[in-house]
Each structure stands twice: as C-alpha cells, then as structure tokens.
Design a protein around this nucleic acid. Sequence first.
RNA 1: GUGGCUGUAGCUCAGUCGGUUAGAGCGCCGGGUUGUGGUCCCGGAGGUCGGGGGUUCGAGUCCCCUCAGUCACCCCA
Length: 432
Amino acid sequence: MERRPLRAPKGVEDVYGPEAARWHALEDRFFEVCDLYGYRRVRIPVFEDTELFVRGVGEATDVVRKEMYSFTDRGGRSLTLRPEGTAGVVRCFVEHHLDQAGLPQKLAYGGPMFRAENVQRGRQRQFNQLGVEAIGVDDPDLDVEVVALGWRFLADCGLEAAALVVNSIGRPDERAAYIEELRGFVERSGVAIGADDRERLRLNPMRLLDTKDPAVAEVVASAPRLYDHLDVESKAHFSAVLDGLEALDIPYTVDHGLVRGLDYYTSTTFEYVSTSLEAAQNALGGGGHYDGLVEVVGGPDLPGIGFALGVERILLAMDAEGAAATDRSTADVVVLQAGAEDEVASTARGICDALRRAGVRSDRPYGGRSLKAQFKHADRTGARFAVIVGARDLGAGRVTVRDLASGAEATVATDDVVAHVTAATGAERGDP
RNA sequence: GUGGCUGUAGCUCAGUCGGUUAGAGCGCCGGGUUGUGGUCCCGGAGGUCGGGGGUUCGAGUCCCCUCAGUCACCCCA
C-alpha cells in the first residue's frame, strides 16, 4: 500500500496552535460588533447552484469566467463552491421571503470561500470572509452604518494603518451611456492597448479605470468621469453618505476610479485597504450597493448593501503592524499522579472531572509518565495550578495543590480541591 | 497560464575545492531527582539531503529532467 505522506491541496491551509485561537478570537469579535449594530447571524451553504453565481456575480467577471470550483453532482446538477457570500445571502433572503420579516434585514455571515486562482501571499484558493448584508431599504444612513461597522471592527483589531476608499458607480442606466463614451474616448486617443486591457474594454469597460498599464492609465485619467454622468439623485445619495461618515469621524478618501470586480455593484462602493501591506494584497475587504441583485435572484425589486472582509488579509495586516497575538493557555489546572496505584488514578480522574464540571479548565498528562514529565506537560499547558495525587497524602484523604507560578503548595482534602482552586482563580479574576 | 527564487532532522538553518560515519540551535523523549516543572548538566531518538537520471574512483555539493513550495504578473479578500 502506498505510504507517501499526503499533503493538503495547493491553496488551502491548516490553522492550528496559537494561530487557531487567534482566528476564533477574530471571528468572535466580528460577530460581537455585528450584534452591537443589530446584524443577525445567518448560516448559508458552502455550495450553491452554479446558476446563482453566474446570474448574481455576473458572466463577464473573472470570478465566474475562470475561478469557480464547479462540479456536477450525482443527480447531474451543476453546483459551485461559493466564490463569495453575497449571492448566497441574497438567495437565502429571497427563498425564505425574509422581506416579510421586516426591512431592512440585517444579516452577518462568515466562512470559507473558494476561487481557483493562483496562490501567492495573501491569496489562497480557500480563503475566509466575514461580511454583512443590509437588504431592503435605500437610505444613505444605512450605507453609513454598514461602512462604519466594518471600519470599527478593523479598528477593534488594532489596525491603525487602514484606510477607507469610497466611490459611487451609479445605476446601470447611468453607466450604460458613460461606458460608450469611455470606450469611444479610449479608442480615439490612439493609445496602444494591451491584450488584457482589450479584453476588459470588450467585456467590462469599467475595469479599464483601474488598468495597470501606465499609458492607458494616463489616457483614462483624462477621460470623462463616471461620477459626472450620475444624476442629481445619485449624487445626493453619495454626498449624504459622505456627510454621514464625516459626522461619525470616519476618515475616507473618494476615488472615482474605484471599480469593484463583481457585476452586481451599484451606487455606493467602498474598499478597506491596509497601508502596511503591499499593494498586491492590501485590500482588507470591500463592498457596496447591489440594487438589482435581489431581483436577479428572483425576488422583489429591493436594494441591498454589504461588505466582505478577508480574514487572512486582516491577519496579515495585524502581523505587519505588530498587533500582538494572544496565546491563551489550554488549561488552568493539571492533575498529576505520583504513582500508578489504582486509587491514585481513579482519584485523579475524579478530581479532574469535578473541576471541569465546576467550570475549571482542567487536563491530565496521560500515558503514565514520570512525575517530572508530568510537570513539564503542566508547564506546556500554561496551567496555573498542579494538583498532585499520590499515595503519601491520599491515605489521609488529601492531595497537594501547587501554584505553578510561585511554587507555593497547600495540602487540601480531596473533597475541597474544587473549592480551593475556584477560590484562588476566582479571586484573581475579581469575581465575588 | 507565464516568470523569478527555494527544496538538508518536527522547526530555523550550516555544510568549504566533489572526499571517511551529513552537522548545529531550538523542540521532542529519557536520566541526574522511585513525590516536584520552569534553570542547569548528561544521554537518546529523529534524515530515501524533494524525486529520477547522468558525470565521477567518489555527489548533499556538478549537469539534465521532474515534482513541490514560495514570490510576482493577471485579478481579487
């Protein structure tokens, strides 16, 4: 039989040890902030009907054209591992008629997303996002709330080198006229257009606005601006959003060249970027309005706005800024055995169980090793106390409790161990 | 898909001009102490030198191929 060690597939990664604790802390913090803002958790599937993404995200997008993990199931259905979260949340909203539960529906989600891309720093094939969606009400103040939620969360993460970029890309009808004008302008300019940009011009001319080609960028810089083609209503909405951000002391920069990669975006769009990361992976997250999406998925004509943040990117930014990772201990108490007598083992087992039932994180060094080795194990867990169970004290119904930091020891009746330990740890926490 | 860089112990890495049995630090296990950890001392386990082929008396070292990882382009989180 083949014994070659198996490795995780390219583009996925294991998270373990202190790093896993960091992830959980980050996710917990995110949902706490969501709770503060009234966004309720929604759990949506990891795979969906392929059609959802083709329609929702858009056929012309890179995501749909070449990055989807699609497969056919045994029933012949085409399914796709979700490349992003918004389409699924909106599908959930439509399918369960959540509009009947009152608008706006404010939802929060998180989890892995999948894109068949080439791997590099800050970009995996399975990556994790945290996001919110507010569906059903068109109000610039709701835009402000969504943008603020993400901003405050990033601040909670200790990210100081974060920046907010905002833009408005208007409604599809406003864009249609502009796109023709842009295309004509670029063609008339006579600039040499590379293969990449030619493709963009054909499929998704808006993307030309963030071209990497300096010559094209120069032409685009002098091209007419989309923002100037927005009507009074759209501009009023956008300036109301800006006013709201200012009122909340959230710093932003307006970039009329900010174009997002997914087709469903309309109106307000924004990105959170880290100035402590290289440009290739400086996007911590982004979002915007998606006013046609609910209808595209088969629901009523309702607006929506949301964002998604990349967990890996936030962690990278935290590393770059030197934000401390807290490495929590895995036990408060470790119950050791001096000797292998049955009574010693069963007492140790019982004490450990009693501690756990009392809510004290407890562990035992299994494997019948030397007391010295057991102490080393206790050290590794970061435990505060070691309880030593051995024949010497057990005859008197007692065990030893050692404070691993100070070395102070107390001899305690086996029945009093839980009270002794909870009193000591409780006093430290300041509990009554 | 394209290009650069890197593959030696669990981890980080050294390995001279091609030369005897491939090393170090950390980590792990054991002992010093049969009831006491962190420090210290001693010992031990752990390697298809990414894989295959070639050159050579001799290859971790040179050449070719290949695989993997990584960074970057594109695009994004």
